[in-house]
Every structure is written in structure tokens, then in C-alpha cells.
Nucleic acid binder design. Structure first.
Lengths: 125, 125
DNA sequence: GCACATATTAGCAAATTAGCTAAATAGCAA
DNA sequence: TTGCTATTTAGCTAATTTGCTAATATGTGC
């Protein structure tokens, strides 16, 4: 279970547009690591990518993107794995699964309380 | 569907501890409006509360809490309704339902892609 | 070793956020 | 009207965040 401190980190990490876009692309596999194109034999998760590849997609400096990635890592939204002189970034789906569960629990409890109190159900639009 | 701008607002609103605690208490009905205790006949949602009642639970000034509530309102996490000279705060469950859906979609797509690619399923811990 | 590629760290400036008090607004009620 | 309650706005300071460049690892390959 995610404690409050961890949830706050996750919300903060995802509240910045640049970090949100990195998150989006890491999770939906929007990038391929340009280095892997040059070294097709290297064994990595096919949706992993690396810092400089992500940075190519933004008009920000590499250190800036590196710092954003660090924050996503500390929020446990992504994991990083160093191979050679590259750092591969991978989605941490378990954290997202937990977030889905937290929000869903809130919704279920709310609907259930409503039914208990009012004896009705709230129509979902 | 929540667009990116709206999602960023929601994440930012929930990234601050004070706002997170207000959110938590509004959604789980932790508070009763002290004013309603004095006027038991008034017709309000039983889990609604008002700004000064929420502020009683924090060691911050009323204007500070008011500003936090405004940010939760602009993120559409809560709704506010003015009745007389009081502002009642209610949870906006639809936004939370959408968030649950967004995270769940991400998880489902991820698991599905994994199955398509690797032919396996990821055990949920 | 030397050059090159990848990434992080350090140090700085600008912008934003989060808190405060005082003042203003708005509704209720004597 | 006057006073009281509830809330917001204005103006301010301190802290945090987000960006940069320059410098510093760290790993690869000649």
C-alpha cells in the first residue's frame, strides 16, 4: 500500500507538464532508444529507452530532463537500470496499478456509502 | 474525458499535504459542519462541510485554507455551493471516477500489450 | 592514455507556491 | 443602520521549483 508521503510524491511528479509527457511516453512506448537502433543486438526491454533519447523530444537541456527523470524515479513511477554508460528507463506498472486501486476504492466506498445512506445508486454518466 | 491540462491541475492540487488532507476528509466525510450542529434543520448534503469548519482542523489561517479549497475547486475535485453566508464543500466523485478510469486504462493496456508481446501475463502481487 | 558519449552534480537566476496579516465583501439578524 | 459571521482579496515574505551553463564522473573504444 502506498502511504501518504509516497502518494504526494507521485502527484507532485505528475503535476509538471514535462514530467507528465515523459511518463506518458515511457508508459505507452512512444520512444525507441536511438542507441539501440545502432546496436540492435543489445538485450533490453523493448519499451525501455534512455535519458538522452527522451531529451531529444524536448526543448530542454539534458540536465533538466535528467532531473525530471530522477523525480519520476523517486516517486517510483519509473525504474532505471544502468547498462554500460547508458541508463535505461522502464515503466513501473505496479505503482500505477496501486494508484488505480486507490482511486477505485474511493469511488466504490463513495458509491456504497451513498447507497447505504440514500438507498439509491448514482448513475454513471 | 479529462484533458492533459485538467489532469495536471488535479495532480498539482493533490501534491500538497494540506490539500490532500482536505480532499481526504471531504471524500471520507470526516467532518461535520459545526454550523449545522447549531442549525440542525438546514438541508445540506450530510457529508458537506464549510470553509471555516475545515480550517478548524488545521494550524493554518483561514485565508490559507480558503486558497487551498479554491485550488481543489478549480481542479474540479470538489464543488462548492454558497448557501447564505456559508460555502458548502462537496466531493466531486465524477472527477475521481475519471482518474480511476485513466489509471486503470493504462494498467489494462500495459498488461494487454505485455501479453501480446511476450505471450504471458504479469502476476499481480 | 586519449577522445568521445552518456549522465549527473553544482551553482546560479527567474518564476511559482505557500504561508501570513490586514482589508474588503457579502449575508444575516437585532 | 449597525454589528456579527463567513469568506475572499490584496499585498507581502520566505521557501521551493524549474530552468540554465559549466564542471564532473563514468563507461566505451581506438
Amino acid at each position: 500500500m502506498l502511504d501518504m508521503e509516497q502518494k504526494l510524491k507521485i502527484f507532485k511528479a505528475l503535476s509538471n507538464e514535462t514530467r507528465f509527457l515523459i511518463f506518458k511516453n515511457v508508459f505507452t512506448g512512444g520512444y525507441a532508444c536511438s542507441l539501440d537502433k545502432k546496436q540492435p543486438g543489445v538485450e533490453v526491454n523493448p519499451i525501455a529507452t534512455c535519458v538522452s533519447t527522451i531529451a531529444e523530444h524536448f526543448n530542454f537541456s539534458l540536465p533538466t530532463i535528467s532531473a525530471h527523470i530522477k523525480e519520476l524515479k523517486e516517486a517510483k513511477i519509473i525504474t532505471v537500470e544502468k547498462k554500460g554508460n547508458k541508463v535505461y528507463i522502464e515503466p513501473n506498472i505496479e505503482t500505477i496499478r496501486e494508484m488505480a486501486g486507490c482511486f477505485q476504492t474511493l469511488v466504490s466506498n463513495f458509491d456504497n456509502n451513498r447507497e447505504l445512506f440514500f438507498g439509491d445508486t448514482l448513475a454513471v454518466k
